[in-house]
Write a protein that binds this DNA or RNA. Sequence first.
DNA 1: ATGTGC
Length: 476
Amino acid sequence: METGRYTAAGPDAWRREPTGAMRVPIIIYADREQLRAMDDKVDEQLEHVAGLPGIVNAAYAMPDAHWGYGFPIGGVAAFDADAGGVVSAGGVGFDISCGVRTMLTGVHADEIRSRQRLLADRLAREIPAGVGSRGFLHLKPRELDEMLAGGARWAVGRGYGVKRDLERIEERGCMAGAEPEWVSERAKKRQQDEVGTLGSGNHYLEVQEVVEIFAADAARAFGLRCGDAVVTLHCGSRGLGHQIGTEFLREMATAAGRHGIVLPDRELACVPVQSETGRRYLGAMAAAVNCALANRQVLTHLVRGVFAELLPAAEPDLLYDVSHNTCKKETHLVDGHERQLHVHRKGATRSFGPKHSSLPPELHDHGQPVLIGGTMGTSSYILAGLGGPVERAFSSACHGAGRTMSRRQACKRWRGRAVMDELERRGIIVRGASFKGLAEEAPGAYKDIDGVVAAAETAGLARRVARVTPLICIKG
DNA sequence: ATGTGC
């Protein structure tokens, strides 16, 4: 990226003052090298976001930011509905409420190693993965509406998990404001057999080992000990979220002009929060969030089934579940005044600090767990939200490593089979839905996760609690 | 991300 217009605005924070149609500055959290290596498109897309009506404070990017559809992945922007603020389907992304969930197993990683291949094969058999994969649930229209209204709470009510799980999920497992009637029949039809499926692309299920602790107090509260095995899954709202995103992007592109919004890029389609389309999108989006929460809950049930059979000493217990593609109405302090804002996080994780009212009592003093997924060959991280007097990017942090190479480029450079063999030599058993998928997801196609997380910490977005490395990876 | 394009 051409960095000439950016000036240092704190540790690993960079600021570009508004020019032209920009209403607010741009703030990018990254170290100097990450900023330099960032795609020019991130700057261009943030410039467009900064010009949208009702935007508050700044258009933000996280250290893992890269070019996305209309709005960068790793981008955060908040809008004030009372000041003409907008909601953008591209600002949420196609995979609505794509997110990460980590479970503690309570067993040592050596227990996993003693039956690693068997566990990998059984997980691969029980967890439906890949494009078009179907689950064991086949929902009738009424059940599907109940799932969209109830999220993980619906799943627990059906016996897929326990009430305690719900305390460890954002929104306590069910996002308010879901309006299943505003979800198209087509979107519902695509989802009827897809609850409890992983999907494809960068979605995965991993069994990991805790290898490093950075903050002993928070690690203790989170239940993380060096040498322990944890299970992490990364997936979203499957066909339903994608269908909603597609339909509303089209509708918003047409409707934006009627509301006097000039779009510098058609992909950045948006409408006022207080418009008919805006309200319908937010109701449908909340339903998709619930779909993703139900999906991760049903997958958790499948994981528990496999562990109960092969490693009965393990009792997978939910640490936390975070979404990183959302638009949420939240209260934030802006210039000393509390304001209700619609915060878009696209490829960015919420990172509420200690004492936030949404946290369960046992996490109250330590902040929200922030789950950062790496690649199948590198570390992943568990951080904690910071809060404090200065809230950065409306309490947000990065979500992963971020790609440096397109899927097409990665396919040219690596063979899926060789990627899998190399990882196995390093003690990581990989089971993928396709070899092409494994090539696309080669660890070398991503930024350095250690550097991304270090920058997030230096910038004050969240603090590191633990690092984990993969033992088993089931790849979609 | 995605019944991998509309």
